[in-house]
Simulated scan of single mutants.
Amino acid sequence: MNTQSNKLRDLIHCGIFAAITAVLAQIEIPLPLVPISGQTLAVGLAATILGSRKGALSMVCYVLLGTVGLPVFAGATAGVPILLGPTGGYLFSFIIIAYLTGFYLEKTSFTLPQAMIANTIAMFVSLLLGTVWLKYVMGLSWVAAIAAGVTPFIIPGLIKAFLASWIGINVRKRLITANIMQEYKASA
């Protein structure tokens, strides 16, 4: 396959994961400031399946779609006010954690144990970044920010980290076997 075909295929993969994130964002449990949603599951899937650059690019696409007004964020919301509101830190963290998760897997191996480590670390990074943002945007104390932005998300986050790892590694293997995606080769 030529380089242009590979680039087009990569862009299609990124677009698909931006769309998957938009769909999973609508699966939510409302909480006062920040809902529990399927977004972080989608981020973990994107990174585990696509790797660092394409996983992060898919999240850039997702955030841009919401920024320009498509209702892709949790609760079918969109726009700059959402990005500047209580959930903005979590949304921006998706780009970072997709890159970090994929990078970790590229430097170690695309296996279930490594994916669990990567997705669990990513969950805590997202909670950290989102909670810092939440604290400053809402003017909360650290105790209140942690109570609203971390505590309710630990158990669901660990479950989503496991699901993203297990589903992601299995789907990745199948996509490579079907020649729909190329195996990542670390550069020397």
Score class of each variant (00 low, 15 high):
residue 4 Q to F: 09
residue 4 Q to I: 06
residue 7 K to N: 14
residue 11 L to E: 03
residue 15 G to P: 02
residue 20 I to K: 01
residue 20 I to R: 00
residue 21 T to H: 02
residue 22 A to M: 03
residue 24 L to I: 01
residue 28 E to M: 12
residue 29 I to C: 03
residue 31 L to A: 04
residue 32 P to L: 07
residue 32 P to Y: 08
residue 32 P to S: 06
residue 33 L to D: 00
residue 33 L to H: 05
residue 34 V to P: 00
residue 34 V to L: 02
residue 35 P to K: 00
residue 36 I to V: 14
residue 38 G to D: 03
residue 40 T to S: 14
residue 40 T to Y: 09
residue 43 V to A: 03
residue 44 G to R: 04
residue 44 G to I: 01
residue 45 L to K: 05
residue 45 L to S: 01
residue 47 A to V: 07
residue 47 A to G: 14
residue 51 G to S: 12
residue 58 S to A: 14
residue 59 M to I: 07
residue 59 M to P: 05
residue 61 C to M: 15
residue 62 Y to S: 04
residue 64 L to H: 12
residue 65 L to W: 11
residue 67 T to Y: 06
residue 67 T to R: 00
residue 69 G to C: 09
residue 71 P to H: 04
residue 72 V to M: 05
residue 73 F to R: 00
residue 74 A to W: 02
residue 74 A to M: 11
residue 76 A to Q: 15
residue 76 A to F: 15
residue 78 A to H: 13
residue 79 G to R: 04
residue 79 G to Q: 10
residue 82 I to F: 04
residue 83 L to F: 11
residue 85 G to W: 07
residue 86 P to S: 15
residue 88 G to H: 00
residue 93 S to N: 08
residue 94 F to N: 03
residue 94 F to M: 05
residue 95 I to H: 09
residue 98 A to L: 02
residue 99 Y to D: 07
residue 102 G to P: 05
residue 103 F to W: 14
residue 103 F to L: 15
residue 103 F to C: 06
residue 105 L to C: 07
residue 106 E to K: 12
residue 108 T to N: 14
residue 110 F to R: 13
residue 112 L to K: 14
residue 117 I to A: 13
residue 118 A to V: 08
residue 119 N to I: 08
residue 122 A to C: 12
residue 122 A to F: 10
residue 122 A to K: 08
residue 126 S to W: 03
residue 126 S to D: 05
residue 127 L to H: 01
residue 127 L to N: 01
residue 127 L to C: 05
residue 129 L to N: 02
residue 130 G to W: 01
residue 131 T to V: 12
residue 133 W to L: 08
residue 134 L to D: 05
residue 135 K to V: 02
residue 136 Y to E: 14
residue 137 V to C: 07
residue 137 V to R: 10
residue 137 V to D: 01
residue 139 G to F: 09
residue 141 S to E: 05
residue 142 W to E: 09
residue 142 W to Q: 04
residue 144 A to S: 13
residue 146 I to N: 04
residue 146 I to W: 04
residue 148 A to Y: 04
residue 153 F to W: 08
residue 162 F to K: 00
residue 163 L to G: 03
residue 164 A to F: 11
residue 164 A to H: 02
residue 165 S to C: 13
residue 169 I to H: 03
residue 170 N to E: 11
residue 170 N to Y: 10
residue 177 T to E: 15
residue 178 A to E: 11
residue 178 A to T: 03
residue 179 N to F: 06
residue 181 M to L: 15
residue 184 Y to S: 10
residue 184 Y to V: 14
